[in-house]
């Protein structure tokens, strides 16, 4: 930045979660969490926000770790960048949809900074990793002055730019459940260009296949409503089917019905609604292929 700022900004980079939670709670709303900063710095530069305290959470080990849970799932720190997650030896094999969603965000440089935690806490209905995480059935661990709690990802956003996190609560990690054999996931988004854009519609599908039949599924849509939507009717249409045209069409219909988008500079109501159905079919096809379809 050139020139100096009118207001002073404090910067803290605590090494423990307790210190972070305490500083965050003490700041009483004047603080912002810095993980990759790919939303925060843009919002500050555009004048949308001017925080009094920036709390960098990247020095807290739990927030930057990727580990396998005893049950066979994964725990991913909230500040882990997409690029780091891509380097993990097994995560991307088990959750290719989550990984591809996170690494559709921005450019290579941005992917070296941007985290799934930031993407979720930014509260945008168009955040790419959010539908993939919801489809995955991921939960988040949050810690605040009142202690720790685990909640499903879909319970975090409540509206554009707003989350369910209580004052002083910090997102710690994502937990992805263990996988049955024959399971996989996928994420697709519609953008007019091929990269460096924001989803007009995003679709995450996570499913399990056995003997050619879909035995479990979760479907989530982004950018079609004030928050990312878990579309249970679409999942129901897929479960028990061989992902034949009729089942896919029924799931697409459910996706279109779940859309409550707005007309804005990024897309129209009509267009977004149509596209949600198209993306469901394509995403389910990719997830099924990855699952082996058998």
């Amino acid at each position: 930045m050139t020139g100096s700022l009118m207001t002073d900004i404090r910067y803290l980079a605590p090494h423990t979660l307790d210190e972070a939670v305490s500083a965050y709670a003490d700041a009483a709303g004047a603080a912002r969490i810095l993980a990759g900063g790919t939303d925060l710095l843009v919002q500050m530069r555009s004048g949308m926000i001017s925080p009094g305290l920036i709390l960098d959470i990247k020095k807290i080990s739990e927030l930057t770790e990727i580990s396998e849970t005893p049950e066979g799932g994964f725990r991913v720190g909230a500040a882990v960048s997409g690029a780091v997650l891509a380097e993990h030896p097994t995560f991307g094999k088990v959750w290719p949809g989550v990984l591809e969603a996170l690494n559709l965000i921005g450019s290579t440089q941005i992917q070296g900074r941007a985290s799934a935690g930031g993407n979720l806490c930014n509260g945008s209905p168009a955040g790419d990793s959010v539908p993939a995480m919801i489809a995955a059935g991921a939960t988040v661990t949050v810690q605040g002055p009142g202690g720790r709690r685990d909640i499903p990802v879909e319970a975090v956003p409540v509206g554009p730019g707003r989350t369910n996190l209580a004052p002083g609560e910090i997102l710690v990690s994502f937990t992805l459940p263990p996988r049955a054999p024959g399971s996989s996931d996928a994420y697709l988004r519609m953008i007019p260009r091929t990269e460096m854009d924001i989803a007009v519609v995003g679709c995450g599908v996570n499913l399990s296949m056995k003997d050619g039949v879909c035995t479990a599924a979760r479907v989530a849509l982004g950018a079609v409503a004030p928050t990312v939507v878990l579309v249970e009717d679409a999942a129901k249409a897929l479960i028990g089917s061989k992902l034949d045209d009729a089942a896919l069409e029924a799931a697409a219909t459910a996706c279109r019905a779940a859309c409550h988008p707005i007309d804005d500079k990024r897309g129209t109501i009509v267009y977004r609604t149509k596209v949600a159905g198209v993306l469901l079919k394509r995403t389910a096809g990719i997830a099924a292929d990855r699952a082996g379809r058998s």
Binding site: P192, R193, T194, E195, M196, D197, I198, K265, R266
Partner: peptide
């Protein structure tokens, strides 16, 4: 250019003013 109801430019950035990117 996209204008809002107040006659203001609504997409004054390279994010929403969609110039081609290399991979296009």
């Amino acid at each position: 250019y996209i204008y809002n109801a107040k006659g203001q430019v609504d997409n004054p950035s390279f994010l929403d003013y969609r110039m081609p990117v290399c991979s296009d």
